[in-house]
Computed example of a mutant assay.
Amino acid sequence: MARVTGVGGIFLRARDPKTLSAWYAKHLGLTLSEYGGATLLWTDEVPATTGMTIWSLFPEDTPYFGKGNEKGQQQAMVNYRVDNLDELLAQLAAENIPIDPHREDSDYGRFAWITDPEGNRIELWQPLLAVEKKEEPPA
């Protein structure tokens, strides 16, 4: 049976694509190609072979994407993998980027949320390396 094998792209609606693309390049380091988008290669992951992409559905009334799901509200949220969450958040704070004060730490990484200039909530994820994961004490 044919099946999906990964995420091939992320596409967002924008009132001003040129300005929003420049914002993502400046504040999140997405290097734009001549076609106007960014190409994120799995070979860019450090350390190698640690990359993954998650695809998931949420209930229509989820608060996870921000305020409710009223008409005109955000219908999707992008999770960007980052190499140093604390450093990136400090950079974004210095640029007055809206940052949600809530943080989450889990067995698979650390999470924070920001908002782009068009009001899209963005999830930032710093995965934990195997050596950073909390090990269970011996029984």
Rank of each mutant, 00 (worst) to 15 (best):
A22T: 05
A25Q: 09
A25I: 02
K26Q: 12
K26S: 11
H27E: 02
L30P: 03
T31I: 07
S33V: 06
S33Y: 04
E34T: 12
G36I: 03
G37L: 06
T39L: 11
L40V: 15
W42F: 10
W42S: 13
E45G: 09
E45D: 13
P47V: 10
T53H: 12
S56Q: 12
L57A: 14
L57W: 10
L57G: 08
P59D: 11
E60W: 02
E60N: 13
G66A: 07
K67F: 15
G68V: 04
N69F: 12
G72S: 04
G72T: 06
Q73K: 11
Q73V: 00
Q73L: 02
Q73E: 11
Q74C: 06
Q75H: 05
M77W: 01
M77S: 07
M77A: 08
V78K: 04
N79Q: 11
N79V: 13
R81I: 04
R81C: 15
D83H: 10
D83E: 14
D83K: 13
N84L: 00
N84I: 00
N84H: 15
L89S: 02
A93R: 15
A93D: 15
A94T: 09
I97G: 00
I97H: 02
D100M: 10
P101E: 12
H102R: 09
H102W: 09
H102C: 04
D105M: 07
D105W: 00
S106H: 10
D107Q: 05
Y108M: 02
Y108A: 01
Y108R: 04
G109A: 07
F111I: 08
A112G: 09
W113S: 14
T115G: 00
E118A: 05
N120E: 04
N120M: 00
R121P: 03
I122N: 01
I122Q: 00
E123S: 07
E123A: 09
L124F: 05
L124I: 09
L124M: 09
Q126P: 03
Q126W: 01
P127E: 11
A130V: 06
